[in-house]
């Protein structure tokens, strides 16, 4: 079935954004994004450029979190594509990645140059221990936002056990657990909707 594209409301017209502006905006997000790109992206795209309303932006990110890949990278592709098609998507993601990649290489080269010093190795070992804790703590924060139910506990524990203890391949675990979890959630949503 062919869908007729919606005619845009002139009062709500799509902003015109060129390739140069996409490049400059995403390069800026990469530059000011120390300690997290997400706040920088929100600042540029919603507050400064007003390409997306706050509500549209939240919806875009909800969408990006269920498509494979990194949220912010996927968002840059979708935004670039919206304004300038495929070329816009490529421009946006490359501009976004450029600064972080250069800084990463400088950091890696600097580390390699000084890693023979035991002080540097000790400090890095401490940071590495903390980095592991950072991942665990972030998982803990995510638990707050999750619906507390026996089934979500079971799905979380089975995933953890299969990956961390049994060491099954990620692909295998996800191919089984993701469809099961979606089917269960659909079943529950339907049962809830069936009730008056």
């Amino acid at each position: 079935m062919n869908e007729i594209p919606e005619k845009s409301d002139p009062a709500n017209a799509e902003p015109r954004v060129g390739l140069g502006e996409l490049f400059a905006t995403f390069l800026t997000i990469g530059l000011i994004g120390f300690g997290g790109l997400a706040p920088a992206a929100h600042h540029m795209i919603v507050e400064k450029k007003k390409w997306y309303s706050p509500k549209e932006y939240v919806e875009l990110f909800a969408l990006c979190s269920i498509v494979p890949g990194g949220n912010i990278l996927n968002a840059s592709v979708i935004i670039g594509n919206r304004f300038q098609g495929g070329l816009g998507a490529i421009t946006s993601i490359l501009a976004l990645m450029m600064t972080p990649l250069v800084i990463l290489v400088i950091l890696a080269v600097t580390y390699d140059r000084f890693s023979h010093l035991s002080e540097v190795r000790a400090a890095t070992a401490g940071a590495a221990s903390a980095a592991a804790g950072l991942i665990v703590g972030t998982a803990g924060k995510l638990i707050r936002g999750v619906e507390k139910s026996w089934t979500s506990l079971v799905f979380g524990l089975v995933t953890f056990g299969a990956i961390a203890i049994v060491r099954l391949p990620l692909q295998f675990v996800l191919l089984i657990l993701v469809p099961l979890s979606i089917l269960w959630a659909l079943y529950r949503a339907r049962r809830k909707a069936g009730r008056p």
Partner: peptide, 17 residues
Amino acid sequence: TKVALAPIVIGLMLASG
């Protein structure tokens, strides 16, 4: 789908940690 993925993501993050 978002609700269904959340516990799996948390399980994966704890495994990564």
